[in-house]
């Protein structure tokens, strides 16, 4: 058990490190000189060279990578080229929008998908099942940014109950800020919920066919009890796997959704940083988001241990 944890932790660190290498390399290969872009197009070559020196861009790639990684390890994300403030400050402001948005979306999607998926499995082959799966099939095909626009049409234009975009800030109070996140979170959550409800349905159908469910029914347990006490808990492994995988989609989705709703989150920051060739901010943000995905997948692996006592990983290679 301990050996498994150590092995997984080493793997986690190696993957995180490789992620920094990939991001750094990609940004080296792609065209665009940050110094030239910050200055006017009429800037003289020696002015650009001076700025490059000031920004440390004239150092070799090895030195720059080393300096960046050494900073990351110490929690120093560097200083933004364009804003001239520490990147950690920029990120800290945006995290207060993106993380609540992501958490709200995961909660909404799980809260919708699991009951609906279980209901479809319990009513397998009947009208309810067909209706739920039909809606889910449609939901899977919905691009979240279009859903966002439709929600704006419905709840901000036709029946103005939520703002069409923007964010008031948490200092204005919990509810006013949350109100700004409801529509974006729904746009992210509903397509995910469609996928998750299909996974839940088939996982529950799988466990409903198992011997222990038959035994539970044979000993006189009601169908509902057998479903919730025996079939559903055992169906959770694939469901949790998909929730973990969806986290990555969700992070990418926020990039577009924050644009749809003009939310000042990390996605918007990535965009601004890319447009201004603020490469240090891009580098930090992409590594941070990839790191979040890697850590979540690690936690999902650990969750298996809690969910299924048969998985001990003692014998695993």
């Amino acid at each position: 058990m301990t050996a498994f944890l150590i092995r997984r932790l080493v793997g986690l660190v190696v993957t995180l490190w490789l992620a920094t290498v990939v991001v750094f390399l990609v940004l080296q290969v792609l065209p665009g000189d940050p110094a030239a872009l910050m200055l006017d197009t009429s800037a003289r070559p020696d002015t650009i060279a001076a700025l490059r020196h000031q920004m440390g861009l004239d150092r070799s790639a090895w030195v720059r990578y080393g300096a960046w990684i050494w900073g990351l390890v110490r929690g120093d994300f560097g200083v933004s080229y364009t804003y001239a403030v520490p990147v950690s400050e920029l990120i800290a402001q945006r995290v207060m929008v993106s993380v609540p948005l992501a958490v709200l979306s995961i909660c909404l999607s799980t809260a919708i998908a699991i009951p609906v998926g279980v209901l479809a499995a319990a009513r397998r082959g009947r009208g309810t099942d067909a209706a739920i799966m039909g809606v889910a099939q449609f939901g899977v095909a919905l691009p979240n940014f279009w859903l966002g626009i439709l929600l704006i049409l419905l709840f901000a234009v036709a029946y103005p109950v939520f703002p069409a975009g923007g964010f008031v800030g948490w200092e204005k109070g919990f509810w006013p800020a949350l109100r700004c996140l409801i529509l974006p979170a729904l746009s992210l959550a509903l397509p995910q919920a469609a996928i998750l409800s299909r996974v839940t349905r088939s996982a529950v159908l799988e466990t409903l066919g198992q011997d222990y469910v038959r035994t539970a029914l044979a000993k006189g347990l009601s169908g509902v009890m057998a479903l919730w006490r025996h079939a559903v808990p055992n169906a959770l492994i694939p469901v949790v796997t998909i929730i973990g995988l969806q986290f990555s989609f969700l992070l990418a989705g926020t990039v577009i959704i924050e644009n749809v709703f003009a939310l000042p989150g990390m996605g918007r920051l990535v965009f601004q940083a890319i447009a201004q060739r603020d490469l240090i901010v891009v580098q930090d943000l992409v590594v941070l988001l990839a790191g979040a995905v890697i850590v979540v997948n690690f936690l999902v692996d650990l969750a298996y241990l809690g969910l299924d006592p048969r998985i001990s990983h003692e014998g695993a290679k």
Partner: peptide
């Protein structure tokens, strides 16, 4: 492939297209 899956696909696509043009 594990490593590639760690990068939110659309986010990285945004980064590549924005920087490469």
């Amino acid at each position: 492939t594990d490593l590639a899956f760690a990068f939110p696909a659309l986010l990285t696509a945004v980064m590549i297209t924005a920087l490469a043009g």
